[in-house]
Amino acid sequence: MLWDLVGIYFNQDMSLDYGSEAAALDAFVADDPDAPKVIDEIDWIFENFSSEKELAAYLESQGSDYLPPGGDGHREWLTRIADHVRAATT
């Protein structure tokens, strides 16, 4: 799931395609009925990668070159994703 999310929705053209993180996440949830599975994947990531460096390396291995805005780390960004998907699918 995360592979699809970062590769399709959080690609280099994300701001042109969607305009914002929230809009990209809304499109992901609308397009993929399995979107809630990304929450479990994010939980797994947090259990297995504790440092910012490890998180960045894992996300890069999943095809992500997205840098969270405003100086947020990848943990904060992934938490935002999980919270948004959870709110949009419950």
Rank of each mutant, 00 (worst) to 15 (best):
2 L>Q: 13
3 W>I: 10
3 W>Q: 15
4 D>R: 14
4 D>A: 12
6 V>R: 07
8 I>S: 13
9 Y>E: 07
9 Y>I: 02
10 F>T: 03
11 N>E: 06
12 Q>R: 15
14 M>L: 15
14 M>N: 08
14 M>V: 11
15 S>K: 15
15 S>N: 05
16 L>S: 10
18 Y>H: 10
20 S>G: 01
21 E>M: 10
21 E>N: 14
22 A>M: 08
22 A>T: 13
23 A>E: 10
24 A>F: 08
25 L>I: 13
26 D>Q: 15
29 V>A: 06
30 A>H: 08
31 D>K: 09
32 D>V: 07
32 D>Q: 10
32 D>E: 13
33 P>N: 02
33 P>D: 05
35 A>L: 02
36 P>V: 04
36 P>E: 03
37 K>C: 00
37 K>P: 01
39 I>P: 05
39 I>D: 03
40 D>L: 08
43 D>M: 07
44 W>E: 11
44 W>N: 09
45 I>D: 00
47 E>F: 10
47 E>R: 15
47 E>M: 10
51 S>W: 04
53 K>M: 11
54 E>S: 14
55 L>S: 05
58 Y>K: 15
59 L>F: 10
59 L>A: 12
60 E>K: 10
63 G>I: 05
64 S>E: 04
65 D>L: 03
68 P>N: 06
70 G>D: 13
73 G>R: 06
73 G>K: 04
73 G>W: 09
74 H>C: 00
75 R>P: 00
77 W>L: 06
79 T>L: 06
80 R>W: 07
81 I>T: 09
81 I>G: 06
82 A>F: 01
82 A>Q: 05
84 H>L: 01
85 V>H: 05
85 V>D: 03
87 A>Q: 15
87 A>W: 12
88 A>K: 13
